[in-house]
Design a protein around this nucleic acid. Structure first.
Lengths: 222, 222
DNA sequence: GCAAAAGTGTTGGAGATACACCCATGA
DNA sequence: TCATGGGTGTATCTCCAACACTTTTGC
C-alpha cells in the first residue's frame, strides 16, 4: 500500500459467477441460463450476482447458489478473479468465479425452470457470454487436477452410491475411461469409502453394494 | 446476473497484493515491508496497490512489481481473492493476491532500501498485517503443488545454474531435503534442462556444469 | 595433503497397468 | 434362457527410494 489516500482511486462493482456442476445420465454437466438482460441478452451465461457491502465473496457465492438451487452446504471453491476492462460493457465489474458441485438428483426441477436454466454437457458447451467460457475451462482444469487430492466425486453423487457410479463420475471428470478392476482395487485400497452393507437393486438385476464416503479420512488421497 | 440495475449495488476498492519470492543463501525468502501508513502502521505487510479503472488485475500487479523491483517479465500468478469485510479497517477493499518469483541477484539493493523492504525467510515469518499471512500460506501451498508441473525453480535462479543450485531451490520450496543422486538423475531424464557446456568455477574448486532451462519443452513435467 | 563441492549406478519394493471371465437375477 | 450390470486376480512393468564412494582442485 502506498501513501495515496483511498479517494484517489476508483471503485468497481464486484460480482461472483457460479459454475454449477452436476452429474446426470453418465455425463458431467453444468447449469447455464440464457441472459435475460443486456448486455449479452439471449446468450448463454453463468449465473452470478453482485457482492454487497455486508458479505464476503464466498458468502455472496453461497447466497447465489442457495437462491438458485435451494440447497445448503454446497461444495464450493474459488476459481479466480477476472478483470478484463470491458468484460462487462456497461460498467467496470470484476468478477470472482466459483465452482460448485451438486448432486443433480437433489436439484429441484421447478427451480431450474423458474430460473430458466438448462443442464448442458461440458463437452458440448455453447459459446458463453463475456469471459465465462474462460472461467469454465479454468474450473474444469482445477477439477481434473484436484480429483485425486480432494473428495470431489462424492459431492456429485447421492450419499450412498455404487462403485460403478463412482467410476462413472470419475471418468466424466477426467474425460477418459479407466479399467474397472484397477479402479475398484484402488477405491478399496485407498480407504476413501466404506461399504454400507446395503444393496442397490435399482440399477441392476443382481444388485450392487452401496458405499459412502469414509468420514474418518484425515487427508484425502485417491 | 439478476435484474437489478448496477446502481443498486455497492462498489468496492480493489487492490492487488504481491508476494515476491526470492532465493538467497540457500533459503526461500520473500520481500516484506513495514507499513508506513495507518491502518497497521509499523506491522509487516505485503506490498500492494489499488487497481485503477484503466488496468486489469494482472496489469496492476505487474505495475506494482515493476515499480518495486525495476524488473520486467516477472513470473507471476494469481493466488486468489480475499474479501473479509474488515480486512481493511478504513474501507471495503477486496484484494487479489499474486505471487511472483524473481532471481534475488537481479534485485537492486537500492530499490530495496528505497522502499524499505527486507528479505525475510519463509520459515521465520513475522505476523503479517490483516490477512496477508493467509495469502502467503496459500501461495506457498500453490508453489509446492505446482513445482512438478510448472518451471518455478528457474525463475528463482540466474539464467545459467548448476545442478546443486537447482536442487537447493527445489528443496527450499518443498521444505525438505532430497537425495542428490536421485535428483540429478531425475533432472537429466526429465529433459527440463540442457547443459550449456560452460563450467562454473565460482562456487567450487572443481567446477560444475552450468545448465539452463530447456526452451523446447511443450509440457513441463518434473 | 586436505577440505569442499561435483559427480556417478545398482538394487529392491511399491504401485500402476494390462487383461477376460463368471455370477446373480429380473424379465 | 438370455440380457444386463456386478464382481473378481495375476503377471508385468515402471517409477521411486535407499544408499557411499571417487574426482578435482584451490589453498
Amino acid at each position: 500500500m502506498n501513501n495515496n489516500t483511498y479517494e484517489q482511486h476508483t471503485q468497481a462493482y464486484v460480482s461472483v459467477d457460479c459454475i454449477i456442476f452436476g452429474f446426470d445420465q453418465g455425463k458431467l454437466k453444468m447449469l447455464l441460463g440464457k441472459r435475460t438482460i443486456a448486455p449479452g441478452l439471449g446468450t448463454w451465461a453463468l449465473y452470478g450476482g453482485f457482492v454487497e457491502a455486508t458479505e464476503t465473496l464466498s458468502e455472496a457465492a453461497k447466497r447465489v447458489l442457495t437462491e438458485l438451487t435451494g440447497l445448503k452446504d454446497i461444495y464450493m471453491r474459488q476459481v479466480g478473479a477476472y478483470s478484463d476492462i470491458d468484460r462487462d460493457p456497461i460498467s467496470r465489474v470484476i468478477s470472482i468465479a466459483y465452482y460448485a458441485l451438486i448432486n443433480a438428483k437433489d436439484y429441484d426441477e421447478n427451480l431450474r425452470k423458474a430460473f430458466n436454466l438448462e443442464w448442458v454437457e461440458i463437452d458440448a458447451l455453447p459459446p458463453l457470454f463475456s469471459d465465462h467460457g474462460t472461467m469454465v475451462q479454468d474450473a474444469l482444469q482445477i477439477l481434473r487436477k484436484r480429483i485425486t487430492s480432494e473428495p470431489l466425486c462424492f459431492s456429485l453423487l447421492p450419499e450412498k452410491f455404487t462403485l460403478t457410479q463412482f467410476q462413472n463420475v470419475f471418468e466424466a471428470i477426467i474425460g477418459k475411461p479407466v479399467d474397472k478392476r484397477n479402479f475398484r482395487k484402488r477405491a478399496k485400497q485407498s480407504g476413501v469409502l466404506v461399504a454400507t452393507g446395503e444393496i442397490d437393486k435399482l440399477t441392476s438385476k443382481r444388485g450392487a453394494m452401496l458405499y459412502k464416503q469414509n468420514p474418518d479420512i484425515e487427508e484425502f488421497r485417491f
